[in-house]
């Protein structure tokens, strides 16, 4: 590892944080309103939430089996933000959302998120702590446990957001057997390829991290999305520059 790598990392982190703070400010948001492309999956998810509210059915959020001390936890964090938002939007439903995960720390966090949503929406009386549960400690046991958990709970929509492996295929198949709507996103490429074949809507790549912003969460979610775009373009420019340089013999 180059000695400059940590330094570059620190600079990227600071720049990213600074830009997020900058774009979060109301002044910037007002002057330069963000324009994002249409994400049909977000639209459909909101519709599914609405249907669940109206039908009195449940939304099942699966956060995968990564641990918070794994690098893959970012996808689970995005899943938690989405869960929080779904919890708020579906607060008027007879059946509050359910969350399954494959690790203990995610179970505790998801329980906390669901409780927080219930508290925010004054539906604590409907809150059942068991609605957030770890259904298995291995990927396949987790997947089967998640299917089993939602089978008798009137689930009409599945949202898979987190770190998954091939076992996600079984999870989605279980959802399909119930005739539920399936939206899935993961940091894992294997999971994404499976999602594309099985799920109704797939969040490819970083779309998963954009989902909280598309569901209308805090300003900082939108701001981070804008900064992501800026950095992506920078990376593209750097890559193109490197290619041109190497072709020209400068590197």
């Amino acid at each position: 590892m180059s000695p400059y790598e940590p330094l570059i990392g620190a600079v990227v982190f600071l720049v990213f944080s600074g830009l997020v703070l900058l774009f979060s400010s109301k002044k910037i948001r007002t002057k330069f309103p963000p324009v994002f492309r249409k994400l049909s999956a977000a639209q459909k998810l909101r519709r599914a939430i609405g249907l669940a509210v109206e039908d009195g059915s449940r939304i099942h959020v699966s956060l995968g089996n990564s641990s918070m001390i794994d690098p893959a936890n970012a996808s689970a964090l995005a899943g938690l933000s989405t869960l929080s938002r779904i919890g708020q939007l579906a607060s008027t439903s007879d059946l509050p959302p359910m969350c399954t995960s494959g690790s203990g720390d995610l179970q505790i966090l998801s329980q906390d998120v669901l409780r927080g949503s219930a508290s925010d929406t004054h539906t604590l009386s409907q809150f059942d702590p068991v609605l957030a549960r770890m259904t298995g400690v291995t990927p396949f046991s987790y997947a089967l446990g998640a299917i089993e958990s939602s089978q008798d709970s009137g689930t009409s929509a599945y949202v898979l957001m987190g770190d998954f492996g091939p076992e996600a295929g079984l999870l989605l198949d279980g959802a399909e057997n119930q005739g539920a709507y399936k939206l899935a996103g993961s940091n894992s490429l294997i999971a994404q390829s499976i999602f594309f074949a099985v799920a109704d809507d797939t969040l490819i790549g970083e779309e998963m991290f954009a989902m909280p912003a598309y569901l209308g969460s805090q300003a900082v979610h939108q701001a981070s999305l804008r900064v992501q775009d800026i950095l992506r373009f920078l990376i593209v420019l750097i890559l193109l520059g490197a290619v041109v340089s190497s072709l020209a013999g400068w590197l």
């Binding site: 703070l21 979060s24 996808s75 964090l77 966090l109 906390d112 409780r115 940091n187 805090q218």
Partner: peptide, 19 residues
Amino acid sequence: LGSLAAGVRILIGSDKPYS
């Protein structure tokens, strides 16, 4: 990049998956 964004949001205290 998305992971970085998620991490930054938590580190600056704007995203709190805990109560």
